[in-house]
């Protein structure tokens, strides 16, 4: 079957999709977006978390056909998504209408280690994960970033218990979560300071 949906603000068309394929498989293997991770494919680890029409979901549990006509945001689009969101609040003079039509910029493979989005800075939560030492092997990181970003959108000043509750669906095996807590606190603090 063919599936048409929007990923990180851009219309996408996936052809020859077998009915049993998950959204995760289509993103990773058909659309060249392997940022969403395949740690369990059982909906237990949260490493494949994406936003489907704004709601965080385990993309491994979403059948590809279910996303027809809908909007998906993955870790690859998180920086632009966050930037458009802050612009959408009027912070940089962009109208809400424009914000709704935001698009992720293409990646530039020539930039090497300095990262993927030469035209975009990292989102606050991405930068905080790096600064706080919340990344080790990094396999849980994309899912945690999407989940944490969504929580901070809803709850800009979370308590520690709020953070733990919101991220309890995302397993991490390396860090013991302490630096992840630090990262989310840091992102929240920077956000409230307007940094």
């Amino acid at each position: 079957m063919r599936v048409n949906f929007t990923v990180n603000g851009r219309p996408q068309e996936a052809d020859d999709v077998w009915e049993g394929e998950s959204l995760l498989y289509v993103l990773r293997e058909r659309l060249g977006l392997p940022g969403s991770k395949n740690a369990c494919e059982q909906g237990e680890c949260g490493s494949c978390t994406v936003r489907l029409d704004g709601v965080p979901v385990c993309s491994c549990l979403v059948a590809a056909g279910q996303v027809e006509g809908r909007e998906v945001v993955t870790v690859e689009g998180l920086a632009d998504y966050a930037r458009q969101r802050s612009c959408g609040t009027g912070a940089c003079g962009t109208s809400p209408d424009e914000a709704r039509r935001w698009q992720a910029k293409g990646t530039d493979s020539g930039t090497g280690q300095s990262g993927a989005f030469p035209h975009a800075t990292l989102s606050p939560i991405q930068q905080a994960f790096i600064d706080a030492g919340a990344v080790q092997c990094g396999f849980c990181t994309p899912g945690l970033l999407v989940a944490a970003d969504e929580m901070l959108e809803r709850n800009p000043n979370p308590t520690d218990a709020d953070i733990r509750e919101a991220l309890s669906g995302n397993l991490c095996r390396c860090t013991g979560y302490e630096k992840i807590m630090d990262a989310v606190r840091l992102a929240a603090a920077r956000q409230s300071e307007g940094v």
Binding site: R28, E29, G32, L33, P34, G35, S36, K37, N38, T74, V75, E76, L78, A79, T107, Q113, S114, G115, A116, F117, L122, Q126, Q127, F129, I130, D131, G133, V135, G138, F139, T141, P142, L145
Partner: peptide, 23 residues
């Protein structure tokens, strides 16, 4: 010093190529 990981940016943007991402 607590210098930051050289692979940190790639890991937070989803671009770091894990073995299961090979294509």
């Amino acid at each position: 010093e607590s210098t930051l990981r050289p692979d940190g940016t790639l890991k937070v943007t989803g671009e770091f190529a894990y073995s299961s991402d090979m294509w």
